[in-house]
């Protein structure tokens, strides 16, 4: 009996480890063996132990730095975890995150905001002309490469693939039409600012196109690349994070448009609406077939915690 109940649990542990490593490798914490920089984030990810007593923050001219026992928290590349003064609440959230780790052994998923902010800071460092090329390569800090990878998401974007109307008695397609089409239209006008001619985004309509890939035109790609080029490195890191979470280029665009200094009214969405857009198909599948334990419920929270975290990092006074 005991054997029977234990086996799935042990199998899950292994699966979980694999999954979390795959995720953490792309963002923030560097889990590779060869990175032995003595930084706080590395130390935490290697020993998985808490080694400090007091978490606080120090304000200087450069911004607000999060400190552990009065030593600054450092990112995987060894930069101090510092946020500018127009991101006061972000500093508070970071401090709260370090002060309230639920268990003393730290898991890669326990510090999501730190992970995004670290990526932002390290990308900014990587873009400096005097940065070490090896370190830049290690975190994948080449801006052109990041943009190219992100651009591929625009072809197979969640918000651009519409289901056949036969599925779910047409309910899913109706919801997609209602939610996605206005966003696509607004995104087209938004991206047109980065091109000489009006941009049109190719949609994969399962009714018309059936099963085939979706490819954006060269003009659209050029406009999207120009948009990515116009982002600050901080915003690019947030954008990257959002796209990887939602599997959607459009969601990244939506999130940044909402947090920009002058928000675009026709792209206005709350983070809950954004998460719903990204998981619309799952919502209907769960409604029809039921919720799968350890999958749907975990993913539901995962998408929401990550998009909210990205939104917090993107916001600026």
């Amino acid at each position: 009996m005991l054997r029977h109940t234990l086996r799935p649990a042990l199998r899950d542990i292994k699966l979980w480890n694999l999954r979390s490593y795959a995720k953490s490798a792309s963002l923030g914490i560097d889990s590779s063996v060869e990175n032995n920089l003595q930084t706080e984030t590395n130390r935490v990810s290697k020993t998985l132990q808490k080694f400090w007593n007091v978490v606080s923050s120090q304000e200087s001219e450069r911004g607000i730095t999060i400190t552990l026992d009065s030593k600054p928290v450092r990112t995987p590349l060894g930069n101090a975890l510092t946020v500018s003064k127009d991101r006061r609440l972000l500093a508070l959230v970071l401090e709260n995150e370090w002060a309230n780790l639920a268990s003393l052994s730290i898991k890669p998923h326990s510090l999501p905001v730190t992970s995004i902010v670290s990526r932002c800071i390290d990308l900014e460092y990587a873009s400096r002309p005097d940065s070490d090329a090896d370190l830049v390569a290690k975190i994948g800090g080449d801006r052109a490469k990041i943009s190219d990878t992100l651009l591929r998401y625009l072809d197979t974007d969640t918000l651009l693939c519409l289901s056949p109307s036969a599925e779910f008695e047409g309910a899913l397609r109706a919801a997609q039409n209602k939610l996605y089409l206005p966003i696509i239209n607004a995104a087209e006008t938004f991206l047109s600012k980065f091109s000489n001619e009006p941009v049109s985004i190719a949609i994969l309509d399962a009714d018309l196109h059936g099963l085939r890939g979706n490819i954006q035109s060269e003009a659209t790609k050029a406009a999207a690349l120009k948009y990515l080029g116009s982002l600050s490195l901080w915003d690019l890191a947030v954008f990257e994070n959002t796209v990887l979470t939602t599997k959607s280029f459009m969601c990244g665009l939506l999130l940044l448009a909402n947090k920009a200094l002058t928000p675009h009214s026709d792209l206005s969405k709350t983070m809950e609406q954004l998460a719903q857009c990204a998981t619309l198909e799952t919502i209907y599948q769960v409604e029809r077939w039921g919720e799968v334990e350890d999958t749907h419920d975990v993913d539901y929270r995962d998408v929401r915690r990550k998009t909210n975290a990205a939104a917090i990092v993107a916001y600026k006074e």
């Binding site: 899950d12 979980w16 959230v93 326990s110 419920d297 975990v298 975290a309 917090i312």
Partner: peptide, 23 residues
């Protein structure tokens, strides 16, 4: 957004712990 993040992060951690008792 901040309160949404804090709430979802907590729920997420609870779920992960529940499904992975070995952690």
């Amino acid at each position: 957004d901040i309160s949404g993040f804090i709430k979802n992060q907590m729920e997420y951690e609870q779920l992960v712990e529940r499904y992975n008792p070995g952690l």
